[in-house]
């Protein structure tokens, strides 16, 4: 069967009940989507299927023949971050980084869907299915709100920098 992954047509040999996550990671070598809980609860395997955020660990690949898949690999690279990636960097929204691919894709889809400045509660609602065990979410929400307003390009000072400036 065929999938369009990050704009490229790819042939997939896996059986129809294989989770999209395993096809991406093991057959196509795209390891951006993480294998976390693998029963749909943690959110880190989230990818965009025809532009909508979906759990790749719950999606049988046979049900999405011909669909367009976007993974974290398509968002940007270190020299050219996407707006959401830049905002995550500037707001220290990633610590261990395991949840980040799912967060980035869900946030990217949210910003495209709403098309304007987001309120914090809209971000919290849309990212409610994504677990982060490091940040406490505040900085992630900060980053997504900033990205929705196009406020990227100036890195916010870190707590250490603020303390140093105040002493």
């Amino acid at each position: 069967m065929k999938l369009v992954v990050n704009g490229k047509e790819r042939l997939v040999a896996a059986g129809p009940l294989t989770p999209l996550l395993h096809v991406l990671r093991e057959e196509l070598g795209l390891v951006g989507a993480k294998a976390g809980c693998q029963h749909g609860s943690c959110g880190t395997c989230t990818v965009l299927i025809d532009g909508e955020p979906r759990r790749s660990c719950l999606t049988p690949v046979g049900a999405i023949e011909g669909a367009s898949i976007t993974t974290a690999e398509a968002l940007g690279d270190p020299a050219n971050l996407s707006v959401v990636q830049a905002a995550f960097d500037e707001h220290y929204a990633a610590q261990c980084g395991f949840c980040t691919p799912g967060m980035l894709l869900a946030a990217t889809a949210l910003i495209e869907r709403k098309g304007g400045a987001l309120e914090r509660d809209e971000v919290v609602e849309a990212l409610g299915g994504h677990y982060c065990r490091c940040t406490g979410y505040v900085k992630i929400v900060d980053a997504v709100v900033a990205a929705s307003r196009g406020e990227t390009g100036t890195r916010a000072p870190s707590t250490l920098e603020i303390r140093a400036a105040g002493s």
Binding site: H39, C57, L58, P60, A63
Partner: peptide
């Protein structure tokens, strides 16, 4: 298999 949210993890 409807949406897959129940069956796929059980198979996995």
């Amino acid at each position: 298999v409807g949406g897959g949210t129940i069956v796929v993890p059980l198979v996995t």
